[in-house]
């Protein structure tokens, strides 16, 4: 019993230590506004983090959008409420699925790649030699990836939502024959710019910070061995996914919860 308590204490302390180190890393990497020459590095990261994730985002978005539309349509058609397909689809996507699914896919596609890349650089002493050359790897390697991820994810979420809604239109309107006018006007009446789109995008920005931060830190802090890198990559995906879902719950509670 005492040993268990001691173990819990030790785990908590090392967890806190990890959080502390991650925070120091974050502050050191990002406290300065990037110089114009650093922007080239950020652009390169937006490319490898964002542009290269587009394919999977667009494909999944289309699939998810059309499946939701199909489900809603078959259920709602029984009450003659086909017009509500657009409303349901848009609200589900903008508020929840868009930000969450994009973040989960992003963690699997880009997060793991970031961790593996930085971990490899550490393992092969590239970070170390960079330090010895008088170049701070936090500025050169870590910061551009942080910014790249934070810029990319909200853009990917916007694309996800758009493509998923398009997928819904294809299924509900073009295929199943729901009325196009009812679909759009129902959506436009119910969807609020700030309440649905805006708050969804806030979620996306929060997820972007969480996922890229975890990915970069896990790479930067990994044990410099092949095994350590593998572990770090797995941890990035697992931790990101858990935290995305947890943050989603609390953000939903915070932004949509009505406690009256």
């Amino acid at each position: 019993m005492e040993r268990m308590l001691r173990q819990v204490g030790a785990d908590t302390l090392s967890w806190l230590q990890g959080l502390g180190r991650a925070t120091v890393m974050w502050i050191r990497a990002a406290y300065r506004v990037p110089k114009p020459s650093d922007w080239m590095l950020v652009i390169r990261q937006v490319y490898s983090i964002g542009v290269l994730s587009m394919a999977i985002i667009v494909l999944s978005a289309f699939a998810i959008g059309s499946v939701i539309a199909l489900q809603f349509y078959t259920q709602l058609a029984r009450f003659g409420a086909e017009d509500a397909v657009g409303v349901g689809l848009a609200l589900v996507l903008l508020r929840e699925l868009g930000p969450v699914v994009t973040a989960l896919l992003f963690a699997g596609r880009a997060g793991s790649a970031i961790t593996a890349e930085i971990g490899l650089m550490k393992t092969t002493e590239q970070l170390s030699i960079m330090e010895m050359m008088g170049v701070d790897p936090l500025r050169r390697i870590v910061a551009p990836r942080l910014w790249g991820g934070i810029i990319s994810m909200p853009l990917l979420t916007l694309m996800f939502n758009t493509v998923a809604i398009y997928g819904g239109v294809v299924v509900a309107v073009h295929w199943l024959g729901a009325d196009s006018g009812g679909f759009w006007s129902g959506m436009q009446n119910a969807v609020e710019l700030w309440d649905d789109l805006g708050k969804g995008m806030i979620k996306s920005v929060v997820f972007a910070v969480v996922v890229t931060w975890i990915a970069v830190y896990q790479g930067y802090d990994c044990e410099p061995t092949a095994e350590g890198m593998g572990l770090a990559t797995t941890r990035t995906v697992v931790m990101s996914s858990v935290l995305i879902l947890a943050f989603d719950f609390f953000l939903t509670l915070l932004m949509y919860g009505d406690f009256r």
Partner: peptide, 10 residues
């Protein structure tokens, strides 16, 4: 500095 492992930027 020349490292024991060459540590080239891959």
């Amino acid at each position: 500095m020349l490292f024991q492992s060459s540590a080239l930027f891959t």
